[in-house]
Write a protein that binds this DNA or RNA. Structure first.
Lengths: 147, 147
DNA sequence: CTCTATGGTCAAGCTGCTTGACCATGTTGT
DNA sequence: ACAACATGGTCAAGCAGCTTGACCATAGAG
């Protein structure tokens, strides 16, 4: 691969990620929820038993302060709630509310819909390959734009 | 592909894009240039004969005002200059300076280096396939984070 | 030779993040 | 037991990078 193509690959990657993220967010909004794209990524972390603010920040690649602000927002919209953490009185356990779980499902549906559009272009096999390649490439990259 | 995997695909895509973008930027900085990741994407547009501010904005997926601010920054750092546009007295042609071309080469080298790391994991063939898949998927997605 | 569209800039404002300070609680070492 | 330090969380202030809105100069169409 030539040097000039490397930058093009980066651009294509960014374009694809941006396209997918936008589609998902549009789909979630169309289903009657209000939210930013980062909600979805927060939800995936919270879905399994909740998380602390700090853990959420690590998952999203932002400071705990930023994560705390996001949680404020999610609480205000009724998607999550802060519970006392069992076993650590300093911490709070952030968990999804019923409405939060509904929104999570909406995000998953929207994501599936967006990916289906890609499957129409690439075919199931290529799409599976794409997913496999991506997970091998960046197993632990930050789930956020570095722009 | 199941619904839950669709969100995972999106996350993997974002992670890969973020990882690559960060590596490129680090590489550019390590070569003695100061810049943000978006510089590289601006450079690729300017590299072939220059562009107007408005065109640059379209390419980056931002308003012309934001593009103009970016150009201000690039001018300040000596990477580009604003020339009168031949054939349209309203417009200005933004072109790379010699220093700008050096920085562009640095970005390309850094990108190639980052992609080489991926080639070590995936192999050249899979990497080419990845590139092909991505360009088919999001031919005209915005080169910017939708977050 | 108006009338409207387009390229560009200036100015103000906002959103989402950061850094720094601080408090409460947990953990470790002596 | 308790001092010393580490960690989870919040509050506050600041800032980068974007947006919208207004405006001017020039272009192009009728």
């Amino acid at each position: 691969m030539h040097t000039s193509e490397a930058l093009a690959l980066s651009a294509a990657l960014l374009a694809a990620a941006g396209d997918l993220t936008r589609r998902i967010n549009d789909g979630v909004v169309a289903r009657g929820f209000e939210g930013r794209p980062s909600y979805g990524f927060a939800f995936t972390r919270l879905a399994r038993g909740g998380a602390t603010v700090t853990e959420l920040g690590v998952h999203l690649g932002v400071t705990k302060q930023a994560a705390s602000q996001l949680v404020d927002e999610l609480v205000r919209k009724g998607y999550v709630e802060r519970l006392p953490h069992p076993g650590d009185a300093r911490a709070r356990l952030i968990v999804l509310t019923e409405r939060g779980r509904e929104c999570t499902r909406a995000a998953e549906e929207a994501a599936a819909e967006a990916v289906r559009a890609w499957a129409d272009v690439l075919g199931e096999e290529q799409l599976g390959a794409l997913r496999a390649q991506l997970t091998r490439i960046a197993p632990s990259g930050p789930i956020r734009p570095v722009w």
